[in-house]
Structures are given as structure tokens and as C-alpha cells.
Design a binder for these strands. Structure first.
Length: 573
DNA sequence: GCCGTTTTCGGCCCGACTGTTTTCAGTCG
């Protein structure tokens, strides 16, 4: 069983945490974290490289020693160094360190002075008044720690929220802030359109920062003020979301947006390039000595570094800086490039709106086409269609097409891929359709080999066009089927099939990394909403955002083509 | 532990806020 990149990263991160608590050199600790981040961001499996230590060592930030460790983890699934560290330091201390306000140093001191080994110990010691007697700790710190323990037990530690949920909270807040603050901008992972976001970073311009911050903390959704200064204020909203507001002047605003958009590793990479040119980059600008050479806009800072403007979605240190140096940045797809939606449901199965309502809603979106893809009979829960009912729907769609002036409704289906790889409806009806979307909904727990063969066999059917929500993951809920995605992508390309980016914000499946991998393989994708409500057609923006994070351009996505061209692409040889 | 307009040690991204102490360490992003 090959060891996943994420597992390797997890082990390296744990080593970093333990070394950190031990009080090891912070740069040594950082190198473990850097390696972990790099590995978890890679699409190639590092285990496959493990025979070739040179290849591993050629990865930036991984040297001889780290390569050996990675090799050991790849081979055995673990590493002796970690066992030794766990003998020295209780692993439960890592949990304490993850509490807000408590870092490696305080964790170590508390362990040494009071023999605290768990969050439970910590709570008891705090309540007994033992902690405030320790040098460097005071009443306030103890109060903060107790509150964090309270929050931690409420939420079980996981705090990230999905992008669209964050959007619902942020929208009204931006309107409110805009009343007294200029150019309010949401930065951070929200601007990079990551599928989940942690804290929200908001930036603004104001000549009167004190008044701006006052306005901010008076927002009705603010539950608690965590920190309040003239340039930075942090609050916790009632929803539990932490929001930071930072105020800048015009001259620094581009630098500030760049800095707080991140990602962290992108920024670090930029600053390294800056250093080579003897520049210093911070949130106020790009400096040579004390002289500010740029700062008003992000673009001028990139220019000074010899780079083209890098779109926020690409700023993950996954090769975008190299591409910018060489002038090879992708011309990213935009929502306006989408000509139609290739997955939508109606009341015929589990959709909540009729064929007519869905058609009209798609026409309003300005689409050239909409595929109606109701479920097949296997999905009994949704009232899936058998041949007869699908035949009826085909006639209804033909009828609808005579009525609709500006949009073509495509005859389609979301047919189940059964456990043996056959499709849930016979070819006789599938051949009547404009396109066939195929999906796995049952038997999700097959072994990797079986699941992969199931999909590959399904693609042998000449009517198979698109694999919907290919991994089956649900963000924050389930991780998806075990399957060899690379093999499936390569075979899909060979066979003239396509994979979907499902735009539902709970799915976003394929994710950004798989989308990028597909592009590298040369496989084209679709971006579809899987709409069950007319309003869901708006999810397209999330799918496009994910595609942009995967470096996709207009030509990488087939539903950017007019129907005439798309039709040809859907014809399998 | 990594890296080097590299040659083997000395840097390693940078700043704000808090709390505790009185000049700074810890934490965070």
C-alpha cells in the first residue's frame, strides 16, 4: 500500500511540532514544515519517487537528510525519529500547542513547571490558579487560555468554513464597513478562492484609523474583540468566524493586498526573489534601503521583481512564480467563458424545479445550452428514471426546444455506474441522448483496484461522455472513493471522455490539484453545477474558481465551446 | 534542516498586538 503524500506531510508536521515544543532551532523546525507543505502540494506521488533519492532531493527545500527521512516513511509508513521524539515528549502536548494563544514555548514551560500533559491538565491548573504563578504568565493570559479551551471543546478544533458560507457572512459586513472605510477588500484565502477559509482578512484605506476600527468593532455581528490597534484589529463574530481588519494608506495599499492575500508560501518565495535583488518587501511596499520603490498596486511590485501579474488563485507556490518569470502564466478561464451548464436536475427526479423553470433560469444566465441530467433508476431514493420515463423526458425536452428561443436544452442523463462497471441504462436509450453523464453513487468503499477498474470499464461504453463528481468527496465530510486518478485521467483522454469539475460548493470535485493534473495530462474537463434548484445554477462561479486554481484556460474546458463544436467533441469514435 | 553570482558556515520573511515587565518574548498571520 503506497504511502500518500498527505501522510508523509502529516508525519513531518508532527516531527516539526514535537521539535518545536522541545525548543529546537526554529529554522530546523521550519524546514520540516516547508518540506511537509511542499509534499502535500504535489500531485506526483512521492512514494513512487522513493527509489530515486536524487529526484526527491531535487525538490526545493528538501535536502539530503530530509530525502532520507522521506524514503524511510515511504518504505515503512513511519519513521524511527518520530517514535524517539514521542518517547521524549508526550504527543498530547501537540494538542495544547494548537490552542490559540498557546504556542510551543508556553507549552514547554507549562509542561516543565507544572507537568501539564493534556488540555484537561491545563484546564485544572488554570482553574486552581497554578498557572498565573508561573513566570511570564499572568491573570489575563490564564483567562485567555481558559476561553480558548472552552471554544476548542465546543468546536472540536476544526474551524475552517466553506467558501460560500464565508461569502454569506462577509457580503453584508463589507457593505457595513464600506460606509466609513474606503476601498474595502477581502484578502486571504477568500480572495484566492480556496474551497475552505479560516480567518477572514479585510483591508481598507482610511485617514482616520481610530474611527475606522471603532466602526468595525461596533458591527452588530461582533461577539468579542480579540485585539484592537490603529493598524490591526481582530474580532470574533457570532458565527465563530475570526475577522481581521487592517487599515493602510493609499501608497501602501497594493503591497498590503499582496501581502495579506498570500499564500504564505507565495509571499515567502516573492521575498526571496526580492532579497536576490536587494529589495525588502513587507506589507507597506517594496523597498531598496529606506526608499519605497513600489507599493500602490500589486502589479508594480510584481513588475519590480521581474514577474508578470499573478492571479490570486494561482498564488500557492505551485510553480506560478517560475511561470511568471518565463512569461508562461496561464490565461485563466473566467465565468464569462462558460457557454452552458452540463449537469442539472428537474422534478422528474430529485430536482426541485420543473424542466421549464430550469430551462428559463438557464436562459436568463445567458447560456447557449443546458443539459438535463436526471438520475437513472438505481438511485431509487431520488426516483431515478428507467428507459420508459427517460424516453418521456426526451420527448418533453424536444417539445421544450420548440418553445425556447435562445437556449438549447440537451437530452442527457446522469446514469449510475454499477459495481461491475456497466451502466444503469441500456445503450438503446443512451444513444438517443446528446450526452451521457456517468457517476458513482453506490458501493463507494470498493478497494482501489476494484474502484479503478469499475470506472475504466464504464468508459468502455461508447456512450460514456463525462464522469461526474469523479472522486465523490464531500468537503469536510468524506474523502472520496479510493481510486487511481492518474490512470483514469489518462484512459479518459485516450477514449475521448471528459471529467467534471462539479461546482457544488460542498463538492468542488475535481479539486484544484486534480484539475491541474488533468491539464498536464492533456485531458479536457467540464464545469457543471449539478443544480437541483434554479438558484444553484449560480454555483458555476465556484467551479470556475476551482478551475482557475487548477490553472485551467478557456480551451481546457469543453463547455466554453458553442454547441456546434461541443457536439463534435461528444461524438466518441 | 536547507542553501549557496557557494565552497562550508551563517543566514534563514517580516511586522503588529498583547501581556508582562520596564525592554521584550510569545504568538499570530
Amino acid at each position: 500500500m503506497p504511502v500518500h503524500n498527505k501522510e508523509i506531510a502529516k508525519i513531518l508536521n508532527e516531527i516539526a511540532d514535537l521539535l518545536d515544543i522541545k525548543g529546537e532551532n526554529e529554522f530546523r523546525v521550519r524546514s520540516y514544515r516547508n518540506a511537509a507543505r511542499t509534499i502535500s502540494g504535489m500531485t506526483e506521488s512521492i512514494t513512487q519517487m522513493a527509489d530515486n533519492k536524487k529526484q526527491i532531493q531535487s525538490i526545493p527545500g528538501i535536502g539530503e537528510s530530509m530525502a532520507e527521512k522521506i524514503e524511510e516513511i515511504s518504505r515503512t509508513g513511519t519513521i524511527s525519529q518520530l517514535d524517539k521524539l514521542r518517547d521524549q515528549i508526550p504527543a498530547s502536548l501537540v494538542e495544547i500547542m494548537k490552542l490559540e494563544q498557546v504556542g510551543p514555548s508556553r507549552t514547554r514551560i507549562l509542561n516543565e513547571e507544572l507537568n501539564i500533559e493534556s488540555i484537561d491538565d491545563l484546564k485544572k491548573a488554570a482553574e486552581k490558579g497554578e498557572i498565573e504563578k508561573v513566570e511570564g504568565f499572568g491573570k489575563k493570559t490564564v483567562e485567555n487560555i481558559l476561553r480558548e479551551i472552552e471554544e476548542y471543546s465546543k468546536k472540536g478544533g476544526s474551524k475552517r468554513v466553506k467558501l460560500h458560507e464565508a461569502g454569506e457572512v462577509i457580503g453584508p459586513m463589507i457593505d457595513y464597513l464600506g460606509k466609513k472605510i474606503d476601498d474595502v477588500t477581502v484578502a486571504g484565502s477568500y480572495r484566492r478562492k480556496k474551497e475552505t477559509v479560516g480567518d477572514i482578512d479585510i483591508l481598507g484605506i482610511s485617514k482616520d484609523p481610530v474611527r475606522a476600527m471603532e466602526h468595525f468593532v461596533n458591527y452588530e455581528e461582533v461577539e468579542r474583540v480579540l485585539a484592537k490597534g490603529e493598524t490591526k484589529t481582530s474580532v470574533k463574530l457570532r458565527t465563530g468566524l475570526q475577522v481581521d481588519l487592517r487599515i493602510f494608506d493609499k501608497q501602501s495599499y497594493g503591497a498590503a493586498i499582496l501581502y495579506f492575500t498570500g499564500s504564505k508560501s507565495h509571499n515567502i518565495a516573492l521575498r526571496k526573489i526580492g532579497q536576490e535583488k536587494d529589495y525588502k518587501i513587507n506589507e507597506y511596499g517594496l523597498y531598496k534601503g529606506n526608499k519605497r520603490l513600489a507599493g500602490k498596486s500589486e502589479k508594480e511590485i510584481y513588475e519590480k521583481l521581474g514577474l508578470g501579474y499573478i492571479e490570486p488563485e494561482l498564488r500557492e507556490d505551485r510553480g506560478e512564480i517560475d511561470a511568471a518569470k518565463k512569461g508562461l502564466l496561464p490565461d485563466l478561464i473566467t465565468p464569462g467563458d462558460i457557454k452552458g451548464d452540463l449537469q442539472a436536475h428537474t422534478t422528474a427526479t430529485d430536482g426541485k424545479y420543473s424542466l421549464e423553470e430550469m430551462s428559463e433560469a438557464a436562459e436568463k444566465m445567458g447560456y447557449e445550452y443546458l443539459a438535463i441530467t436526471d438520475h437513472s433508476k438505481k438511485v431509487a431514493m431520488a426516483g431515478g428514471l428507467d428507459e420508459k420515463r427517460l424516453a418521456v423526458q426526451i420527448r418533453e425536452i424536444d417539445e421544450m426546444n420548440r418553445k425556447m428561443k435562445n437556449i438549447r436544452i440537451l437530452r442527457a442523463v446522469e446514469v449510475d455506474i454499477l459495481e461491475d462497471g456497466s451502466l444503469d441504462l441500456p445503450d438503446e436509450i443512451l444513444k438517443e441522448l446528446d450526452l451521457v453523464v456517468c457517476a458513482v453513487h453506490y458501493n463507494m468503499n470498493l478497494s482501489k483496484r476494484k474502484q479503478t477498474r469499475r470506472i475504466l470499464r464504464a468508459m468502455e461504453n461508447p456512450y460514456f461522455n463525462i464522469l461526474a463528481h469523479p472522486t465523490g468527496r464531500m468537503i469536510g465530510k468524506r474523502s472520496g472513493y479510493d481510486m487511481d486518478m492518474e490512470e483514469i485521467m489518462k484512459e479518459a483522454k485516450n477514449k475521448g471522455c471528459f471529467l467534471e469539475i462539479n461546482s457544488n460548493p460542498d463538492r468542488l470535485d475535481l479539486n484544484d490539484q486534480y484539475a491541474k493534473q488533468a491539464k498536464e495530462i492533456g485531458l479536457k474537463l467540464t464545469i457543471s453545477t449539478d443544480a437541483h434548484y434554479t438558484g444553484n445554477l449560480e454555483y458555476m462561479k465556484y467551479g470556475v474558481a476551482q478551475a482557475r486554481r487548477g490553472w485551467l484556460e478557456k480551451e481546457d474546458v469543453i463547455n466554453t465551446r458553442p454547441w456546434k463544436e461541443l457536439k463534435k467533441l461528444l461524438k466518441r469514435k
